[in-house]
Amino acid sequence: MSHTKLLGPVARFGSRYGKGIKENLVEIEKKYRNKKLKCPFCNNISVKRLSYGIWYCTHCGKKFTGKAYSIQ
C-alpha cells in the first residue's frame, strides 16, 4: 500500500513533520470533516466546522465557538 493511501489527505505535508504527528492528524480530521455533530441549541445533528474553533448549525442558523476540532 502506498504512503498516500495510508495517510490520505495528510499526505499533502509530504516528508515534513513525521509519521506519528500525521497519523494523529488523520484521526482528528476524520472526526470533524466527514460527519455532522449535534447542535447544543436545537439538538439537531447539523453542525459543521467553519474554521478553527468556529462552528455553524445549518438547522437553526446559530454560529458559535468551541474547541478547535470538537464542539465540547
Rank of each mutant, 00 (worst) to 15 (best):
S2N: 05
H3V: 08
H3D: 10
T4F: 04
K5N: 06
K5G: 03
K5F: 02
L6T: 12
L6D: 09
L6Y: 07
L6A: 10
L6V: 07
L7I: 04
L7Q: 05
L7N: 04
G8T: 05
P9C: 15
A11P: 04
A11E: 09
A11I: 07
A11T: 15
R12E: 15
R12W: 08
R12F: 12
F13Y: 13
F13R: 11
F13N: 10
G14I: 04
G14H: 04
G14D: 05
R16A: 12
R16P: 01
R16H: 10
R16Q: 07
Y17M: 13
Y17T: 15
Y17R: 12
G18D: 05
G20L: 07
G20R: 11
I21N: 07
I21C: 01
K22E: 09
E23K: 15
N24Q: 14
N24L: 07
N24D: 10
E27T: 05
E27Q: 15
E27P: 00
E27I: 05
I28H: 08
E29C: 06
E29D: 01
E29T: 04
K30W: 04
K30P: 00
K31N: 13
K31M: 03
K31E: 11
K31V: 03
Y32P: 00
R33Q: 14
R33F: 13
N34A: 08
N34S: 10
K35N: 03
K35Q: 14
L37N: 02
L37A: 03
K38P: 04
K38W: 06
C39K: 00
P40H: 03
P40C: 11
P40G: 09
P40A: 09
P40E: 06
F41L: 10
F41W: 02
F41Y: 15
F41I: 09
F41G: 00
F41M: 01
C42N: 02
N43I: 11
N43K: 13
N44K: 14
I45R: 13
I45G: 03
S46A: 12
S46W: 02
V47D: 01
V47C: 04
K48H: 09
K48E: 14
K48P: 05
R49D: 09
R49Q: 12
R49S: 11
L50I: 14
L50D: 07
L50R: 05
L50S: 06
Y52S: 06
Y52R: 09
Y52M: 12
Y52I: 09
Y52A: 14
G53Y: 00
I54D: 01
W55A: 01
W55S: 02
Y56S: 06
Y56R: 02
C57L: 06
C57T: 03
T58V: 11
T58H: 08
H59E: 08
C60W: 12
C60E: 11
G61I: 02
G61H: 13
G61P: 08
K62F: 06
K63V: 11
F64R: 01
F64A: 07
F64S: 09
T65I: 10
G66Y: 01
K67W: 03
K67L: 10
K67G: 15
K67P: 02
K67N: 15
A68K: 05
A68L: 03
A68R: 03
Y69C: 05
Y69Q: 04
Y69N: 14
Y69F: 14
Y69P: 00
S70D: 13
I71Y: 00
I71T: 13
I71P: 00
I71W: 00
Q72C: 13
Q72W: 13
